[in-house]
Design a protein around this nucleic acid. Structure first.
Length: 578
RNA sequence: GCCCCUGUAGCUCAGUUGGCAGAGCAUAUCCAUGGUAAGGAUAAGGUCAACGGUUCGAUUCCGUUCGGGGGCUCCA
């Protein structure tokens, strides 16, 4: 976020606080920072506030802005600050946390706030029509559940009215693409509260997408030197005690079920199972690298409030893989994973991809040899640079068990989504004591890398729905061709053409209902079916087809054979156009 | 779990300042001879989320519970 827009947003936040102070005597102030698309401020209100009250606050803010109030910075001692904010418990707590020395405060109008700044010079620099108060939300003081809950007012704010309007338009577009909405409109999936929250039911059309995606995924993995595994959905407590999950991951695991005299847990991760296969025999350095992939379905507990359509669920299928390799191989392996991931994203049509490298956490919570952390982190960094990816380093942001790279893709309306994650795992390899015999006859510990390229099939489906607005590329479209007669008289030719297309493996549907042609075209268009083939007397006589494209194009009198060849070619090459 | 919003037909939503519940789409039946985004008619479809309370009377007002959405937290 550029410094000037941050300054504007933060200044807006102070103006909102001033407005709230005018309208609600006795209000206590939390904090009010600038955020990605605006700002918020946390308040403890003396009486309940409702959404309708936001309009009054906005009005007061506009009145303040019109007064051309100057933002004045002052520096005071800690003692003076405590005196100044004696009625503001949250501010006092913040002051306590500050280092000794002078503390800066900002005044505008009759409002004063503890603040590092900077701010704009005057409210004149804030455009009264470049912000809007969005929602009320609850937020714990300092994000801590055990602390009081404050009322947070979120707002969108920009430097100009035009930017605000463009942003609101993007949000409107995002709402139209909402995965839950498209899932219903395109009959792809559903969820059923009465049958269990956060569990996805894939309908026939969603199933067609998934099969096409997974078939491709498996094919690509074989091409890239992976083997595909299938492992159980449950495992005895021994497995989870050994892996450590019952220690550090238990709150995300479901209660065990008793089988004979043992407790079995449904799996939240696939790693321990892959390790069991690794340990099923003595491994030589000649066997490495091992690249083992699995579309592994896992179940994790998520709090009810966190569940969201396809994006956050309780049961999902990871496109998981584990790579076991020697230290000499690690650099090449990481490069390969990254290259593989990028090639998949490219095929799927994502153009902008950014990497986030998370390094070793501070303190002594991290497991594993520091030299290995060093080598692992270095291999990640090198791979990113080799691919020429834009990246950011999240210093100390890695898990306790290893450094990682996450890749985020930018979607069609500019939002970023995390799909790929590539993580080293020093913990599991230690706990299960996995080894290989090196060329010198010594037992050594291989590197273990955990990776998911799409993340999970469910979440990817959600992201892809929102990215494409449901207009999937041909090869992933549940229905690829809708075959429509001009009138019932041509049903026979429609059936014949449909049969030919299906015979070639093309997902074609004959639309033979009583509806009129226009209605069928409308239905097919709304279902985002890529090709609509319209057949009447002319086409029947010449053995041609008239093709209407989902994108609005129209091509008449194409020879049937030529059309079939073209569709097959577009599917084969996974073309993004029609 | 907590804060705010919300719950009317399969779907999208009206509506009742407390007096027998409405539309469009979808569904079913019938009618309709044909060229690129909805042909027409009829029918069926509801314990107005559930349970209490106030009232002559509650879908409407109040309370509780259960869902859904947006946040906090977490992350694939």
């Amino acid at each position: 976020m550029a410094a000037d827009i941050e300054r504007i947003r933060h200044s807006f936040a102070h103006v909102m606080a001033e407005a709230v102070q005018h309208l609600y005597g006795g209000v206590k102030f939390g904090i009010g920072p600038a955020i990605q698309d605006g700002f918020y401020y946390d308040f403890l209100f003396p009486k309940p506030v409702a959404e309708e009250d936001l309009r009054a606050i906005e009005k007061e803010m506009r009145r303040i802005i019109a007064q051309d109030q100057i933002f004045v910075r002052e520096e005071v001692t800690k003692e003076q600050a405590k005196e100044l904010f004696r009625d503001q418990p949250f501010k006092l707590e913040l002051i306590e946390g500050l280092e000794e020395g002078t503390i800066s405060i900002y005044r505008q109008g009759d409002f004063v706030d503890l603040c590092r700044g900077p701010h704009v010079e005057s409210t004149r620099e804030l455009k009264p029509d470049a912000f809007t108060l969005k929602t009320l939300a609850g937020a714990y003081w300092r994000g801590d559940e055990t602390r009081p809950m404050l009322t947070r007012i979120y707002a969108y704010a920009f430097a100009s009215k035009a930017e605000l309007e463009a942003y609101l338009k993007m949000l409107e577009e995002a709402e139209k693409r909402d995965n839950r909405r498209l899932g219903k409109e395109l009959d792809l999936f559903s969820t059923h509260e009465e049958a269990g929250a956060g569990l996805i039911y894939w309908h026939p059309k969603g199933g067609r997408f998934r099969v096409a995606l997974e078939d491709w995924w498996r094919e690509e993995h074989y091409k890239n030197g992976y083997e595909i595994l299938f492992t159980p959905h449950i495992g005895k407590s021994w497995l989870w005690e050994t892996s450590g999950h019952l220690g550090f991951y238990k709150e995300n695991m479901y209660s065990p079920m008793k089988i004979d005299e043992d407790n079995y847990y449904i799996k939240p991760m696939n790693c321990p199972f892959h390790i069991m296969i690794y340990k099923s025999q003595t491994r030589s350095y000649r066997d490495l690298p091992l690249r083992w992939a699995e579309l592994g379905t896992v179940y994790r507990y998520e709090r009810a409030g966190a569940l969201h359509g396809l994006m956050r669920v309780r049961g999902f299928t990871q496109d998981d893989a584990h790579i076991f390799c020697t230290p000499e191989q690690i650099e090449g392996e990481i490069e390969e994973v990254l290259r593989f991931s990028l090639s998949m994203h490219k095929t799927l049509g994502f153009k902008e991809i950014k990497a986030y490298l998370a390094t070793k956490p501070k303190g002594d919570g991290a497991v594993g040899d520091p030299a290995r952390w060093e080598q692992a982190t270095e291999s990640l960094r090198k791979a990113i640079e080799k691919e020429g990816l834009a990246y950011e380093i999240d210093e100390g942001g890695g898990a306790f068990y290893g450094p990682k790279i996450d890749l985020k893709v930018k979607d069609a309306i500019g939002r970023e989504w995390q799909l790929t994650t590539i993580q080293f795992d020093f913990n599991m390899s230690e706990r299960f004591q996995i080894e290989y015999i090196d060329s010198d006859g010594q037992r050594k510990r291989p590197y273990m890398v955990h990776r998911a390229l799409l993340g999970s099939i469910e979440r990817f489906f959600g992201v892809y729905l929102e990215h494409t607005a449901g207009a999937f590329p041909l090869w992933l479209s549940p229905e690829q061709v809708a075959v429509i007669p001009v009138a019932p008289l041509f049903d026979e030719y429609v059936k014949e053409v449909t049969a030919i297309l299906k015979g070639k493996g093309i997902r074609a549907t004959a639309m033979l209902s009583e509806e009129r042609m226009n209605a069928k075209i409308r239905d097919a268009q709304n279902q985002k079916i890529p090709y609509m083939v319209i057949l009447g007397q002319r086409e029947k006589d010449d053995r041609t087809v008239s093709v209407r494209l989902r994108t609005g194009g129209q091509e008449n009198g194409i020879a049937l054979d030529a059309f079939v060849a073209r569709v097959l070619e577009k599917i084969e090459t996974k073309a993004l156009d029609l």
